[in-house]
Design a binder for these strands. Structure first.
Lengths: 339, 339
DNA sequence: GACTGGCACTCGCTACAGTCGAGTGCCAAA
DNA sequence: TTTGGCACTCGACTGTAGCGAGTGCCAGTC
């Protein structure tokens, strides 16, 4: 059976009320708070249908209704309109992000901003190395048999590793090596480097061959293979909002999941600029079956270099959260483009 | 009145039992579990005295006794002997720390290790810049009017900032500037740099004067004044251990405090190599009055470059935690010394 | 045929009373 | 100084009863 308009209105009203009050909503309260134009009895009939279809459920026989994950999904897909940000929020975002001195700074400010506006847990991925291009590779001699290689990416990320050299190099040899690697790798995407690095080794003059091998091994191992993603997290205290009602009193599994970078990356590592919503059970991580995640990709212009998002109880203000995440992602992208 | 030995034994037994069971301990249970050689009635008399002196208290009239902060303090100062680490723990520490490729890696491994062994929240401060010396300053041209300055410290920390130049510089000028700054600043402690930076500006050739000013302003502002401390955190999920009994059910204030770097630094930013214990109310941070913190300084050799520590309920295994924190601090120091 | 008012029913929540038992303080005797 | 005994306290648990929000169903109405 297909749901008629009024039933959808009822579902929308239930979601809105439940999100606002955190209490199961009954037929009488519903007609009082919304202009549905029908009596409680009618609403009850509609509710029975909605329950049969799996969009709402009763915690106990004599209680009101609560949306199911499926109900939230329908709400998000068809019943809600994206809430425009208030001018105050808009200004807050702008003010928060200007004056960042540093990529680290941008990321930290962003994650705190997101947590503060949405009042939920915020996660921001650093621009992915795999989607960055090399702007410069610097070799800094630490001792005669050790150099620190510093890679600066176009996204502002800076990564460094120490490389142990098989043979000592003098100053001019380091300079040559620096020139060669930069000529070869500058401007290329990090994910495309393996063949370039190979070429670098092949073309290196004999006396630098061994050093080049050591250098390229480190580069490939640390930057490409274990491709070094990073994330920032803020707002975990917001999980305690709403007392023990959300998450049936146990933050444990959620806090555990949030400590795993791999999991966070899976949640917010977006490839597309689309705002994505994962509701409760739709989530792949078992520990997070009671939460919803709203995430979006960001990047300068149209390319996406990383993801960011927000995690909260399934009972969340989806329209508001979606709007905020989307807006913040856009602003961060602009921030990066200026760089 | 001064406490005789048996009363101290009773206090020690109460602390140990309470830490183990998390339940108020009564006189009968106490004589059953410990060889005190006296009857419950005698223990009750001792307990009355200990309570009068403020070392223990009764949650309610008909309940057993629970140590007060003051009781824990006495226990830590005079009644506990540092528990030697088990060989397994020792091995775990060693295995965990070898193979770290990077300062970031060392810090992250350390903080996870600490959280895992102590089963509490762990905090590790990155080596403080204020106590590091400059190993190398690298200038990387981003455009003709922009350079990225990368500072490499002897502790392995690497910090970078972009500097906007008032006038364009060519390749050779950048090289000169690099040479000048390195000659001036290499090997000096970061906290001692202000006069050196001033000298650098004064001695710079005219055509580099403006650039030097811009560079030194950035250096002073970001590295010295806001002296850029960083911390890593792990194990927040351990706060939920022991159900809602610790922290009277509200993790909120604690999670909030843990999000503030400033607070974390106040807690574990040690100057001395001593293991320090702060118990409950002794803490300056209001949000953390229900927690205890065990912290220690670490560094290569005898110098201290940073702090690390552990945070948990006042009801914690002090001897074990102290031993672990101390051992981890020492191993991290050795790690850094090898570098 | 859709909607509505009425009604019986369910069941979680709260209040209250009663019982149990761990633990205490005190006292007199050893 | 220690100990056994005893009366007392009070939290935890159990069972009962009443309340009320909310439901499903049905007969009547538009």
């Amino acid at each position: 059976m297909t749901l008629d308009d009024r039933k959808l209105d009822v579902l929308r009203a239930i979601v809105e009320d439940y999100v606002a009050t955190q209490e199961p909503v009954g037929s009488k309260a519903l007609v009082e708070r919304h202009q549905l134009g029908v009596s409680p009895a009618t609403v009850r009939n509609d509710m029975a249908v909605l329950e049969e279809e799996g969009y709402i459920r009763q915690p106990h026989t004599s209680a009101g209704r609560v949306p199911t994950d499926r109900g939230y999904r329908l709400f998000v897909d068809r019943l809600s309109t994206v809430k425009p940000l208030s001018p105050a929020e808009r200004r807050a975002i702008e003010r928060f992000l200007v004056g960042a001195v540093d990529l680290d700074d941008v990321v930290h400010r962003t994650v705190r901003l997101l947590a503060q506006i949405t009042r939920q847990v915020a996660v921001v991925q650093y621009p992915s190395l795999a989607r960055s291009t090399v702007r410069h590779l610097e070799l800094v001699p630490i001792s005669t048999t050790r150099v620190m290689v510093v890679m600066i990416a176009n996204t502002g990320r800076v990564e460094q590793r120490q490389v142990e050299l098989p043979t000592p190099l003098d100053e001019t040899q380091v300079t040559t090596l620096r020139r060669l690697t930069n000529e070869k790798l500058c401007g290329s995407k990090l994910s495309d480097t393996p063949p370039l690095v190979q070429a670098l080794v092949d073309e290196a003059p004999v006396e630098l061959r061994a050093a080049t091998v050591a250098l390229s091994t480190t580069l490939l191992e640390t930057l490409v293979e274990r491709h070094e993603e990073r994330v920032a997290l803020a707002g975990t205290a917001n999980l305690t909002r709403g007392g023990l009602l959300d998450f049936q009193g146990s933050l444990r599994p959620i806090l555990e999941a949030l400590e795993e970078e791999v999991i966070l990356l899976k949640l917010i590592g977006e490839v597309e600029p689309i705002t994505r919503v994962r509701i409760g059970d739709e989530n792949e991580i078992d520990n997070l079956r009671a939460t919803s995640i709203v995430s979006a990709g960001y990047g300068p212009g149209v390319t996406i270099v990383g993801g960011l998002g927000v995690l909260g109880p399934t009972r969340m203000d989806y329209p508001g959260t979606i709007a905020t995440v989307r807006a913040v992602a856009r602003y961060v992208g602009e921030m990066l483009a200026q760089n």
